[in-house]
Design a protein around this nucleic acid. Structure first.
Lengths: 144, 144
DNA sequence: GACGCAAACTGGAATGGTTCCGAAATGAGA
DNA sequence: TCTCATTTCGGAACCATTCCAGTTTGCGTC
């Protein structure tokens, strides 16, 4: 079970010693409710405001950054679009429509060629992106 | 052979009916010479200026956009870093250092687990990104 | 329940990469 | 050489995101 849900996220905050604030809860609600839409900061901001409590955009950004750095959610980065957030931490491919920006999660049956799967999903692939982020050998040696 | 080289790129421009201008040639030179560094727009701008001819930053952006939309090079998009450009169009993983921004190309021996390779390269993976970009079923139906 | 403090929040200003725009220059086919 | 669509220019505009200084607040402790 790696999809976000509310209690789970809140427990993780506690474990990490992060405070449970109404703003964070509102943001979590927005994330959980829009999990299939891979929401961006603006959508989350608007949703969180509806949930009553006062939230500022700065807080939304700070919180999403905090959450993704803590590994609670995953940040998807783009060029001309806002960043989007993904609560599904399992290994999967994001099929991203260049025209409408829709993001479809596609889980990989280990044996199949990802490109074939995409083709079967009726999605025309024009560009693939495989990136592993982390720390290179040199930076690991270097203090701080 | 899928790594960029100068004549090849120039031929592709001709084939696509794009004009060969001194600015474009200077940009191509910069791309070819820095192919291992996965240069960003600013680096390319500075290199291209050294190559004598007048070039503006707008032109660099327009040209890189043109090239990546035409599939001559690949645009790597980031959140807080400039976009970077990759002349290697073959399927490979980009190992991206979170601290210094270095990007290492890692070609995938089909049978191995990408994560293991990364580990063997002395690169600590904290985040994986697999994305296929293209057009979703709905957008394919829709005119324009 | 009250206290104290580090953590979190605010909103407005600043940042910085990228795009846009109207005008001027130019490559390349006729 | 002529012509015109394409390309370039530079400066302004854009916009997602970050920063900052001051204020508020969650929560462990008494």
């Amino acid at each position: 079970m790696r999809k976000i849900n509310k209690e789970n996220l809140i427990n993780q905050l506690k474990e990490k010693g992060l405070k449970i604030t109404p703003q964070r809860v509102a943001i979590i609600d927005a994330l959980v409710e829009n999990r299939h839409a891979h929401p961006g900061a603006t959508l989350i901001y608007n949703e969180a405001r509806k949930k009553a409590s006062r939230v500022s955009l700065s807080t939304v950004y700070a919180t999403l950054k905090e959450f993704s750095e803590s590994g609670l959610i995953k940040q998807l980065e783009f060029d001309r679009m806002e960043n989007r957030y993904d609560g599904d931490l399992s290994e999967h491919i994001n099929l991203i429509c260049k025209r409408c920006g829709t993001i479809i999660d596609y889980h990989i049956p280990a044996t199949l060629e990802p490109k074939d799967i995409a083709r079967k999903a009726g999605f025309v692939v024009t560009d693939t992106r495989m990136e592993f982020h982390g720390y290179c050998r040199d930076c690991l040696k270097r203090p701080d």
